[in-house]
Design a protein around this nucleic acid. Structure first.
Lengths: 218, 218
DNA sequence: GTATTTAATGGACAAGCGTCCATTAGCAAC
DNA sequence: GTTGCTAATGGACGCTTGTCCATTAAATAC
């Protein structure tokens, strides 16, 4: 019998075999996101990426056609992971609009989506988006999907209880979204002082102020 | 009599004479901010900056000691301009806490501070701050000063009317700040659709929801 | 086994980067 | 004028960047 470790995906991160195009592709994307989070997007070079992925120089050109396209693919992947997590959480939320909104808030501020690596990558991508169409595309898609979910839920609430002078669904979406983005920024500038519970509770207070009778605190 | 234009600071941007260290310094800072806003911080190189400032290669090293220090100086200058505008507006606001808070909100979202160039520069700086201590310093200083002003005003309000279950001054500051940051992000992603009035009004509604009896809408 | 296919390698390359400094030139003092 | 000071110039430098491709080697088909 032979040794059974070493060559069989033992660590979960290593590629399956020496020839594994799909694995190499993903390894490059992961290494890109790691590098951006660790040393910043300005210092993220082809060399720093392939060093971290433990692959050879030519792989980026081979699998993505260039550094720029790798960055776009990494942004796309990041956005997909974000949205997958959100949808997973929404499946357990049921159909109640309030529950949906609070599930979005809780998930967006939860440790799976809002953590050091993720927040740094998000921030870096947003910072360069304006001069990088490939990245811009995916981060604005992510925003629009999130806003879409919120707006649909808020529309239900405003329709049910048409409470005269209150906020429109559009404004409520706008405000909630801004608060969430602000929380991410805050998290980055003070990770130790940040409290997820407090952030969720604050948004909930904002919502219950805007929609009296709804979003009651525990 | 001689011609009186052409060589006497006529355009306000040109340097006063061919030898003007202070003017050159400022021209480099302005060119840096312009370049960042136009082509992004990633593509902002020594060459692109000196081309825009219409100065020679050596000037960056001469006046700032290197590109990195020029960037830090540009961040510092940006922050100073922001804060000067804010203080100017606060002088007219009087001593009333509500008026101070609303003046901060209106100024932060006004065209002098929130415009295309300014927002793009701000975004770019924040995106690289984590791997660039010189920039990080000034953008966090700016944040802290703004939060300080808000918190002091909110403390007055919470002290006067100690309305039991309401928001603490810290939370109100947190929420207002997050909303403002969110508005800037929103402005960047949809400049045409953005309405300053709506943004101000939304924050005011948030505040009047949190502090019933205060921040009454017009 | 051999042939075929293609993932992966890593060095060569030109272009571009930021830094530096010997030189030039503008202004003030005399 | 001449001198002294220093702002300003712009080319040379070494280094790093991203791209590309001839070569190697792993897996599959026969």
């Amino acid at each position: 019998m032979e040794t059974l470790d070493k060559n069989k995906e033992s660590k979960g991160k290593k590629r399956a075999s020496k020839r594994d195009p799909e694995g190499s592709r993903q390894a490059l994307i992961d290494a890109t996101l790691d590098t951006i989070a660790e040393i910043g997007i300005t210092d993220t070079t082809v060399t720093s990426i392939i060093k971290r992925a433990d692959l050879s120089r030519g792989m980026i050109h081979l699998h993505f056609g260039g550094k720029d396209k790798l960055l776009s693919s990494a942004a796309k992947y990041y956005s997909e992971v974000y949205y997958a997590e959100l949808e997973k959480s929404l499946k357990h939320a049921g159909g109640d609009p309030e529950a949906i909104i609070m599930a979005v808030v809780r998930t967006d501020l939860g440790p799976n989506l809002l953590n050091e690596r993720s927040a740094k990558v998000w921030h870096a991508f947003r910072g360069v988006a304006h001069s990088h169409p490939g990245i811009s595309e995916y981060s604005s898609t992510q925003d629009e999907r999130l806003k879409g979910i919120l707006q649909k839920a808020f529309e239900h609430i405003t329709r049910e209880h048409s409470v005269g002078g209150q906020l429109s669904a559009r404004q409520a979406t706008f405000g909630t979204f801004a608060l969430l983005e602000g929380m991410w920024v805050h998290f980055l500038s003070d990770m130790d002082g940040f409290s997820r519970e407090e952030a969720v509770s604050l948004i909930q207070k904002f919502l219950s102020g805007m929609f009296p009778g709804h979003f009651a605190q525990d």
